[in-house]
Write a protein that binds this DNA or RNA. Structure first.
Length: 359
DNA sequence: GATCCGTGGGG
DNA sequence: TCCCCAAGGAT
């Protein structure tokens, strides 16, 4: 093993993070094996998502669906409801598709090779390598954002992203050991998350500071080099929150594909398209006593949305088609993305208010 | 290769 | 407040 590999594994043995989906090096040494289902589920949830945001969702999913077979038996809508709030909803749709395939075509067991894993929906280069190394002990180069940062610093790779990816992969492959490849991959990610951070890395306490070319010659914070990002356009639209006399809100389903695909929404104008939506009350989905309830702003990955909010009370339930009515208290159980919770909260301020403990 | 896809937290 | 970005994948 290379010096870097030995040092990092040694560091990991005493400084690894304790995570709900992780087998500690001590337990691993004692013969505890990782559950591929839990590894897969955690890796999908962790895509572009912070550890702290994932933890409660991981607990909820594994409690509700302890095995991939349980998950396959759930409906897509069940999965979307449980995923609501975590973002990137195509992950949830692909999660369900993947579970179905694993159960129907692989007898409930994940393929134990990178190519087989990559063929499954929602599993790309990173996730296939992560599952292969963490769950199956295959010495595969696991490259995520942390690894990109650590490697470009270790070797002072100044090629801008994403053009540096091939070089990064080669460097990672070269230091990935045949023994404990999963621990090594997780060690690289822990190092990137806790010490080799994007800003103000803690080089003084880094186990690899003697090996870091960026630290020796310049400032590690310069790496990885990235192209400047473009500004976000602003889109506008309107959302319509209709309430019935018996305290229910009208919801409908979004189309399966694209932004917030398959999730629930209150009726809105067409802000999803490049063109801005209508912000006027005349664009309401059905006639009612619409009253302005202000506006909300929500920032997506590639645009900013400003929605005018309208509310109407005492709406006849038979006036609206292609949707359903739900009690305000039951809204939490719906597959509502955050932007829709904001819209509803603007119209019904206590819709998602947390229950106060009785005095 | 570039673009589309959420959200919440930290500096 | 604003900007950055976090264990990426699909098209």
């Amino acid at each position: 093993m290379q010096p870097i590999t030995v040092k990092l594994l040694h560091w990991y043995d005493s400084h690894h993070r304790i995570l709900p989906w992780r087998i500690s090096p001590r337990d691993r040494l004692a013969g505890v094996v990782a559950d591929p289902y839990r590894v897969w589920l955690s890796e999908i949830m962790l895509q572009q998502t912070t550890v702290e945001a994932v933890k409660p969702y991981f607990r909820a999913f594994t409690e509700k669906w302890p095995t991939v077979t349980h998950l396959a038996s759930a409906s897509q809508d069940d999965v979307l409801r449980a995923w609501a709030g975590l973002g990137y909803y195509s992950r949830a749709r692909n999660l369900k598709k993947c579970a179905d395939i694993v159960c129907a075509e692989f007898g409930g067991r994940f393929p134990i090779d990178v190519a087989g894993l990559k063929s499954l929906p929602g599993i790309g280069d990173y996730t296939a390598a992560a599952i292969a190394s963490i769950a199956f002990d295959l010495p595969t180069a696991v490259v995520d954002g942390n690894v990109e940062r650590v490697i470009t610093r270790l070797y002072a790779l100044a090629t801008p992203m994403p053009f540096a990816k091939p070089e990064i992969r080669l460097r990672m492959q070269a230091i990935t050991p045949d023994e404990r490849p999963g621990d090594f991959a997780q060690a690289m990610m822990d190092l990137g998350a806790t010490i080799c951070t994007p800003r103000r890395p803690a080089c003084v306490i880094c186990p690899l500071n003697d090996n870091c070319e960026a630290l020796r010659t310049t400032d590690p914070e310069f790496f990885p080099v990235k192209a400047p990002k473009k500004e976000k356009p602003v889109r506008v639209g309107a959302a319509f929150v209709a309430a019935s006399t018996d305290g229910e809100v009208f919801l409908r389903s979004r189309i399966e594909t694209g932004l917030l695909g398959g999730m629930a929404e209150v009726p809105t104008t067409g802000w999803t398209a490049r063109l801005d939506g209508d912000t006027d009350v005349d664009a309401a989905p059905f006639p009612a006593n619409w009253i302005s309830a202000g506006s909300i702003t929500h920032v997506f990955t590639h645009f900013e949305l400003r929605l005018a909010i309208y509310r109407a009370g005492e709406v006849q339930k038979d006036i609206a088609a292609d949707g359903w009515w739900v009690k305000v208290e039951k809204l939490t159980g719906e597959a509502l993305p955050t932007v829709m919770k904001k819209a509803i909260a603007a119209a019904i301020p206590d819709a998602f208010a947390k229950r106060r403990k009785e005095e």
